[in-house]
Simulated assay, not measured.
Amino acid sequence: MKRAKRMECFRPSIFTRLEEEKQRQQKLGKTMIDFSIGSPDIAPARHIIDALCTEVAKPENYRYAIHDLPQLQTAIAAWYERRYQVSLDGQKEILTLQGSQEALANIALTICDPGDYVLVPDPYYPIFADGPRLAGAKVWFMPMREENDFLIRFDEIPQEIAEKASLMIVSYPNNPTGATADDRFYEELIAFARRYDIAVLHDNAYSELVFDGPLGKSFLSYPGAKDVGVELNSFSKTYGMAGARLGVLVGNAQLIEGYKILKSNMDYGIFLPIQKAGVVALNENQNCVETTRQTYIHRRNLMVRCFQEAGWQIRPNRATMFLWARIPQGYADSEAFALALLKHCGIIVTPGTSFGREGERYVRIALVVEDAQIEEAGRRLKESRLFR
């Protein structure tokens, strides 16, 4: 059976090896503590769940959703105005998605011709590179290094690459590093994009999970941003609606229109009960957002303390639900360390190499387990003496 050449973009990952080792350890009677999966474990607030349940029970909500509900467009525009002081035209500058990953996978199809370059941060969420490759584009990786606070350095991008680039993907607060970006960075980003006529896709899924300093801003908060790009936002991290798959693409009207045309030829809109639950999430009591933020802050502090007591010094993340932790000396790379951690401690983390070359000496730890498991992981680490 013939397989398309584009499938060469995808290869079996380290997760296969981790899963095999996990099953071997479980057969030996060991329990696993899994910090590898970045799936939020904090459910939506009760009023959001109730709204979804009510709407699911209505037969009329099972028709195709050809367009976004006007009330959802209005709620998104009001939330952006209230939260970021950004004005959006509901008809031209807002489009809902089956989760923000939908646009990350497909938007390059609307912007890039085969052979165009897409600028992608490294380390990176895998779909940042996979989507452009499926569109036939070439990927140029922009290193994010700890000594630069994991900020992209635009002066390191060769001019000949910038001139061939049609799209740049940027994401702060950042997965996997947990880094945030300041005003100067965004001003430089917009100037760079304008200079080389590059469209910007800013993934802002974690703007409500900023722990240190002021709350996260929108890319669109900065002058000129709408002229060069669009932003993704997500109901998954902010409101716990990960499985419901509801995201939003906002910003430049021309880019939005192009994606609307593509989407209309690929799929229908979002299931109506999910759209209506999204309206309730945006319009009603927002205390759940702060509760979620404080939960992750507590888990971060607990994990950093417990792991430090075991000898693993981890730099606290400024934002997101992830710690980006350096591995100890003596291991060839993050995959070797992750497998050793699983085998000796029953602790599963994601090797940094899953996120690109710059992740070779790091692992990602997701803050998606309860306190008792974090404390147990710390105890196992201390007993293992891997860090002594």
Score class of each variant (00 low, 15 high):
20 E>I: 05
67 H>E: 14
110 T>G: 05
223 P>C: 04
151 L>W: 11
353 T>M: 13
200 V>R: 02
165 A>N: 03
237 K>T: 09
144 M>I: 13
17 R>Q: 10
99 G>L: 01
268 Y>N: 08
188 E>N: 04
31 T>I: 03
246 L>H: 07
10 F>N: 08
37 I>N: 09
238 T>G: 11
135 A>S: 02
331 Y>T: 00
151 L>N: 06
165 A>H: 10
262 L>W: 13
139 V>E: 00
119 L>I: 11
203 D>A: 14
236 S>R: 01
377 A>F: 08
180 T>C: 13
371 D>P: 03
129 A>T: 07
386 L>N: 07
361 R>K: 12
223 P>R: 06
188 E>M: 00
88 L>G: 05
183 D>C: 06
110 T>N: 01
251 G>K: 06
215 L>A: 10
211 F>S: 04
210 V>M: 04
341 L>W: 06
295 T>D: 08
261 I>C: 04
265 N>Q: 13
158 P>C: 03
227 D>I: 04
105 A>V: 00
115 G>E: 02
348 I>M: 08
32 M>P: 00
90 G>E: 08
115 G>M: 05
128 F>K: 13
313 Q>M: 06
169 I>Y: 02
94 I>C: 01
271 F>N: 11
43 A>P: 05
255 L>D: 01
150 F>T: 12
349 V>D: 00
48 I>V: 10
81 E>P: 00
140 W>H: 15
166 S>P: 00
32 M>S: 11
317 N>L: 00
217 K>G: 04
79 W>C: 07
281 A>K: 11
73 Q>I: 14
59 P>C: 00
382 K>W: 05
351 P>R: 02
176 P>Q: 04
40 P>L: 14
366 A>W: 07
281 A>I: 11
351 P>D: 00
85 Q>C: 07
104 L>C: 01
229 G>I: 07
166 S>W: 05
43 A>S: 06
362 Y>S: 02
98 Q>F: 02
377 A>V: 14
255 L>W: 06
249 L>M: 12
342 L>Q: 04
48 I>E: 06
324 W>I: 00
9 C>L: 13
278 G>R: 06
25 Q>R: 15
55 E>P: 10
118 V>D: 01
339 L>H: 02
324 W>S: 01
3 R>G: 08
44 P>S: 13
247 G>D: 00
232 L>A: 08
67 H>M: 08
211 F>E: 12
238 T>L: 08
308 Q>T: 12
269 G>C: 08
320 T>D: 03
28 L>E: 14
335 E>T: 11
376 E>I: 10
35 F>K: 13
137 A>D: 03
220 L>S: 03
198 I>R: 05
30 K>D: 03
28 L>H: 09
63 R>F: 08
5 K>Q: 13
161 I>P: 03
372 A>Y: 09
352 G>Q: 10
9 C>T: 15
161 I>A: 12
187 E>H: 13
173 P>V: 10
382 K>T: 09
272 L>A: 09
49 I>M: 13
166 S>G: 05
163 E>Y: 11
2 K>H: 11
188 E>H: 12
309 E>I: 10
342 L>V: 00
218 S>A: 13
52 L>Y: 14
